[in-house]
């Protein structure tokens, strides 16, 4: 004779995060990355030393300065510059494969407004670089 009884299962713990962590560990293991990471962690002092050997404050400051310069770029200007560089690369490749031009031919190029615009831009850029170097304390 079995009298009917009730039972309420306890609320299960939320294991979603640990499940996901287990999955990540399994994936890292299967890919071999876990072994690589383990090696990296175990050799951490040596790796850090090696890194410091090639990195100094000057390098870091240079990277930061260059990054800052890139952030200030106007994308439209940059795109025009990039397009110009792309074309320059193509035209230069063509010019290299052609017979070398004589002094007169080179001089005649100065009549071409695009050539003059390019030289102006290059000289202006060089002047700006030079000015910046001069201003450096």
């Amino acid at each position: 004779m079995a009298r009917p009884l009730g039972y309420l299962p306890p609320t299960p713990p939320d294991t979603a995060a640990t499940d996901e962590l287990d999955d990540l560990v399994a994936a890292l293991h299967e890919s071999g990355l876990l072994r690589a990471l383990t090696g990296g962690v175990r050799s951490y002092p040596q790796l850090l030393g090696t890194l410091l050997d090639v990195l100094d404050a000057r390098t870091v400051r240079s990277v930061v300065a260059l990054t800052t310069a890139l952030r200030d770029l106007d994308p439209d200007q940059a795109e025009r510059l990039a397009t110009g560089l792309r074309r320059a690369r193509e035209d230069a490749a063509t010019a290299v494969e052609s017979k070398a031009e004589g002094p007169l031919a080179l001089f005649r190029r100065m009549r071409d407004p695009d050539t003059r615009r390019g030289i102006s831009a290059a000289l202006a850029a060089l002047a700006a670089v030079g000015g910046a170097m001069r201003d450096r304390p």
Binding site: A2, G6, Y7, P9
Partner: peptide, 9 residues
């Protein structure tokens, strides 16, 4: 834990 479970051993 179904209704039938109430009667189970």
């Amino acid at each position: 834990f179904s209704h039938t479970c109430r009667y189970a051993d």
